[in-house]
């Protein structure tokens, strides 16, 4: 038995070598490399993105320099507001293209996934950098659709700009139908619902999607809670807290301790401000 086992082990080693050898040498898609090569790739990616992030910090420093200097000079808030920052120095414009190249090169690694997330946040709200966010989206679609960690990126997907919304909705629809992970599907469906719910024309679609989250993914965890609980507040907001709705009544105690109700301000324009000093 022992010699046979040993032989079996040797055969395995040879097969492993045959499999990994050519894969490293001829691989067209970096994401397909497995095992040790994966770790090496991940380490290289981490290093590359670390360098890029250093450049990003420097670019941010340069971009905000007029504000930092003004603060040092002791300018007032009003004067600070007047300072215009040079759009050509916008950090995402300066470093974004290099980041995209690295995402392409290290596609499939966790580091590149994190960079896609970062780029979406930085470029997704800017008009001139919107194309970079769209590129990041297409990288996510190509390389991370089956990845469980995609859930971290989806969590903030609905904070994208209106200009980004159509591309984001397309992406989220694909995620909901193609991801093998329920957590990812749930996050995709939830973000899609939130985006659709923002606009009056698509609000009924948003409501239907929220109900789908409630029915199909209610048990999936969302932070410390579950989607079933999370969605309750969103359903109320989508139905009752939209532009054009009568503001729901608020009855409670004022900070001084006196009873107060929102409807007693009727006849006045109200700036309703949820605030806290923290």
């Amino acid at each position: 038995m022992i010699p046979r086992l040993r032989r079996y082990g040797t055969v395995c080693l040879v097969i492993a070598f045959m499999l990994s050898g050519p894969a490293v040498a001829f691989s067209f898609s970096p994401a397909s490399v497995s095992g040790i090569a994966d770790e090496k790739m991940e380490a290289a990616a981490e290093k590359a993105f670390e360098e890029i992030n250093k450049k990003m910090s420097k670019a941010q420093e340069a971009y905000y320099k007029p504000l930092t200097e003004a603060r040092e000079k002791g300018l007032s808030d009003k004067e600070m507001e007047k300072i215009e920052l040079d759009p050509a120095l916008d950090p995402v414009m300066v470093v974004g293209p290099e980041m995209l190249k690295a995402i392409d090169k290290y596609a499939g690694t966790d580091a590149a996934l994190g960079a896609c997330d970062q780029l979406l946040a930085l470029a997704g709200r800017s008009e001139s950098a919107g194309w970079m966010a769209e590129k990041a989206l297409s990288a996510l679609k190509t390389h991370y659709l089956k990845n469980e960690k995609l859930v971290d990126v989806l969590r903030y997907a609905h904070y994208c700009s209106d200009a980004m919304a159509p591309a984001m909705c397309d992406f989220l629809s694909v995620v909901v139908s193609d991801s093998p992970h329920r957590e990812v599907q749930a996050a995709g469906c939830y973000s899609l619902a939130k985006i659709k719910g923002k606009k009056e024309e698509t609000r009924s679609e948003g409501l239907a999607l929220l109900k789908r989250v409630q029915d199909e993914y209610g048990d999936v965890s969302y932070g410390r809670s579950v989607y079933a609980d999370k969605v309750k507040g969103d359903l109320f907001e989508m139905k009752n807290l939209q532009v054009g709705c009568v503001a729901p009544e608020i009855i409670g105690k004022e900070i001084s301790g006196k009873l107060m109700q929102l409807s007693s301000f009727r006849g006045k324009v109200i700036l309703l401000d949820f605030w806290g000093d923290w």
Partner: peptide, 27 residues
């Protein structure tokens, strides 16, 4: 708190502008 939870507030500050008739006009 109960008001923030009912109004689904997850970020601060959150602003609503309500007109004199009590209709939400801006968010």
């Amino acid at each position: 708190g109960p008001i923030s939870t009912r109004w689904n507030v997850t970020g601060w500050p959150t602003i609503y502008l309500i007109d004199a008739k009590g209709i939400i006009r801006y968010k």
